[in-house]
């Protein structure tokens, strides 16, 4: 399998204290990686390094990314003075830009909202527009920085299904930064745990399609990942304690 992203000995710091201390990571084409870590573990710094947004950082190392990279932020970040479709095609050139934009909007189930203003949409709808904007350029790498963090639980589940389906269709390599262990297991092919600027774990999810095997694999992964994140409490014991 060919590589979409190649990271070697990546180091980054903003002040004297290093934030990333020698990251080595490959992401294959079409691979979905979830990046877990506590606050301050450096996961956002890694994403911003790949997005080319770390202007103020000092550092060494290699980060090779493909030509077409898209970013989804925690906030939808739609320009309030552009209608929905104009937001999606922002920066897109070519005669078919609007057609592609409309197709992307239909993919996130918002067909017909082309001419709405961003403020007329709900939070979940705005984030779907942001997703459409990130996919309209057919990215080879999709970087998502806690994209569902600001959404309510029900909307988040719908967004999971949507993102899973769309990444299966468009096949970008995905790096999803999250602090939600369940979200990571649910969506990713591989979960990478970052701790104090180093990769603490790199686990292939390989979740069975359904049934008891899936449930038990999910639970095992969950315990393992929570352990890497320094959380010892088991959900079962929590439930028993109440």
């Amino acid at each position: 399998m060919s590589t979409a992203v190649r990271i070697r000995r990546l180091e980054r710091r903003f002040t004297a204290k290093p934030v990333l201390r020698g990251i080595d990571l490959d992401i294959a084409k079409g691979e979905f990686i979830a990046l877990l870590g506590r606050s301050g573990s450096g996961k956002s710094t890694l994403l911003r390094a790949l997005a080319g947004l770390d202007h103020d950082a000092i550092g060494t190392g290699l980060a090779q990314v493909p030509q077409r990279v898209s970013v989804v932020f925690q906030d939808a970040r739609l320009l309030p003075w552009r209608r929905v479709l104009d937001n999606i095609v922002l920066g897109q050139s070519g005669a078919d830009a609007r057609v592609r934009g409309q197709r992307a909007l239909a993919e996130v189930e918002l067909a017909g909202r082309e001419n709405s203003w961003p403020y007329e949409l709900s939070g979940g709808e705005q984030q779907r527009v942001a997703l459409a904007r990130s996919l309209v350029s057919e990215p080879e790498l999709l970087l998502a920085d806690e994209p569902f963090g600001a959404l309510d639980a029900l909307t988040r589940i719908r967004m999971h299904v949507l993102l899973k389906r769309l990444s299966a269709i468009h096949q970008p390599a995905v790096l999803l930064v999250t602090h939600d262990v369940d979200e990571a297991i649910e969506l990713a092919d591989r979960v990478v745990v970052l701790d104090q600027g180093r990769i603490a774990a790199d686990i292939t999810v390989a979740l069975p399609e359904q049934g008891n095997a899936r449930t038990s694999r999910f639970a095992a992964l969950r315990t393992e990942l929570l352990g890497h994140l320094g959380v010892e409490a088991e959900p079962a014991s929590l439930a028993a304690g109440v």
């Binding site: 947004l53 970040r77 320009l79 003075w81």
Partner: peptide, 27 residues
Amino acid sequence: LRYVELAETLRLSYWQFIRQVVLPGAM
């Protein structure tokens, strides 16, 4: 600044950035 970051990730040229982000935002 969030819109500046957005424009950077969308690879807008300087003039696209001025015309489509900065000027309408200053209206």
